[in-house]
């Protein structure tokens, strides 16, 4: 490996320094730090909000700690996204195998039509069926979250070049190894893009989930809107906005790492 030899010959200090500089220059690191700081120390911002909104008696949201809100929000998104990934991948794999190929067009139609449904409408419809609280939010997030993952899994697997597939078959790969070693790695960036879309939409929908009784970072926003407390709105909005942006940037890195030949 040429990379290994140069590593051994060159002194490691500059490389390390460069890496440290790159870490410090990355917006991801700074935004993530800001997010963590706000979640942990929101009460400390009280003087700032008191100055910005002098008319408010209680300028910082205290009904629940931002840590609790963030944990609940992330929990909702993580649990539903995990379920959506499993379901979306499984369904996407099934309809692209020989046994399930007959279902491919109808599943594609469902994914395409389903994605035109507004996520908030899906959330709202799950209330009459399930009731209030975290449960309808989880169900709605999972249902809606499946669609982009399913769509992109199919798209990713379908775009694996027939030449690569043919070559793998020609070299005697059995179907399962062909899937694991050729098709899935080649489709991974597209699938990951679907997961990214799904997670980002879910972060937004979970925010609205507080209107159906789920605890999330949307709670201060909703409470602030109904109680005319703009400070609460700003606090919730900034934290959830940062959460979404940090998550998106993390996925961007992950996608770049998964793209074959661009490591």
């Amino acid at each position: 490996m040429p990379a290994g030899t140069t590593d051994r010959i060159l002194p490691t200090a500059p490389a390390e320094g460069q890496r440290r500089a790159a870490v410090l220059a990355s917006p991801l690191v700074w935004l993530a730090l800001a997010l963590v700081a706000l979640v942990l120390f929101m009460p400390a911002t009280e003087p700032l909000f008191r100055a910005l909104f002098p008319e408010l008696a209680r300028p910082v949201y205290t009904r629940a700690s931002f840590l609790a809100l963030a944990v609940s929000h992330i929990g909702l998104v993580a649990a539903s996204s995990l379920a959506a990934v499993v379901a979306g991948l499984a369904a996407g794999l099934f309809v692209t195998r020989r046994a399930g190929r007959e279902f491919l067009p109808i599943v594609q139609a469902i994914a395409a039509i389903g994605q035109t449904f507004p996520p908030v409408a899906v959330l709202a419809i799950s209330v009459p069926l399930i009731g209030y609280g975290a449960a309808p939010t989880l169900v709605a997030l999972t249902l809606y979250g499946v669609l982009p993952i399913l769509g992109n899994t199919i798209a990713g697997l379908e775009t694996v070049s027939p030449a690569a597939r043919e070559a793998a078959r020609g070299m005697g790969f059995p179907p399962l190894r062909r899937l694991l070693e050729v098709e899935l790695p080649l489709a991974a960036p597209v699938i990951m893009a679907g997961i990214r879309t799904s997670v980002i939409i879910n972060i937004g929908t979970a925010t609205v989930g507080s209107t159906v009784g789920a605890l999330s970072l949307g709670s201060p926003i909703i409470e602030g809107l109904s109680g005319n407390n703009t400070a609460y709105v700003v606090q919730g909005a900034v934290v959830v906005g940062l959460l979404a942006i940090v998550t998106d940037l993390l996925f961007e890195r992950l996608e770049r790492r998964l793209t074959p030949g661009r490591r």
Binding site: I200, G204, I221, G236
Partner: peptide, 13 residues
């Protein structure tokens, strides 16, 4: 990527 309700809220001020 910013959730809609957050962006709406941030524009109020």
């Amino acid at each position: 990527t910013i959730p809609s309700i957050a962006l709406f809220g941030l524009l109020i001020g």
